[in-house]
């Protein structure tokens, strides 16, 4: 066990633990805060794999902007633990069954996949560095990149149109 492995296990435990807390917290604001911690742990994983750019962009976009908007909406809706309506017991059971099925499918799919025997490249590899990532995006994957940016632009225009109404 060297130091990057210790960090890997610590970050994984943090990510999984806080992800579970997102689901089981009674207060929606606490759920959002746990989700932010999850994003931090995932960014830590990116940095362990030497993908600094992806790590920091994950923080800026998800933890810095999207989760702020989430918090914004939830704080304005004033959802407290006391006022939250209790869900039907059968609904909860159905949720557990559906989640279990999803888990089963994912385990089966991962079992077939080839990643099983591979170990993540910790501290090596440089595809996540900004220079290589930019070159890959703007040469090999330029068409999907442009298509997705057109998609974002149309989403933006749509949001403005809806906001104007």
């Amino acid at each position: 066990m060297d130091i990057s492995q210790i960090l890997f296990y610590a970050l994984s435990a943090l990510a999984l633990g806080s992800a579970i807390m997102v689901v089981i917290s009674r207060n929606p604001v606490h759920s959002v805060l746990w989700l932010i911690i999850t994003f931090f742990a995932i960014s830590g994983h990116y940095i362990l794999m030497n993908a600094q750019f992806l790590g920091i962009v994950n923080l800026i976009v998800y933890a810095g902007a999207i989760m702020v908007l989430f918090l914004f909406v939830i704080m304005l809706m004033n959802l407290n633990a006391e006022t939250e309506p209790q869900k039907n017991k059968w609904l909860k059971l159905a949720g557990v069954v559906a989640g279990g099925c999803l888990l089963l499918v994912m385990v089966a799919a991962l079992k077939q996949a080839e990643v099983k025997g591979q170990v993540a490249m910790l501290g090596t590899g440089d595809i996540g560095l900004i220079k290589n990532l930019g070159q890959a995006l703007f040469t090999d994957y330029v068409v999907p990149f442009e298509i997705s940016s057109v998609l974002f632009l149309s989403a933006m225009v749509g949001a403005v149109v809806i906001g104007k109404k």
Partner: peptide
Amino acid sequence: INIGILYVFGVVSMGVYGIMIGGW
């Protein structure tokens, strides 16, 4: 680090949580 400016930017965007959490 080779993403210096982005780091500054990321930390600045974290600063808003102090205000939001305290205010709520």
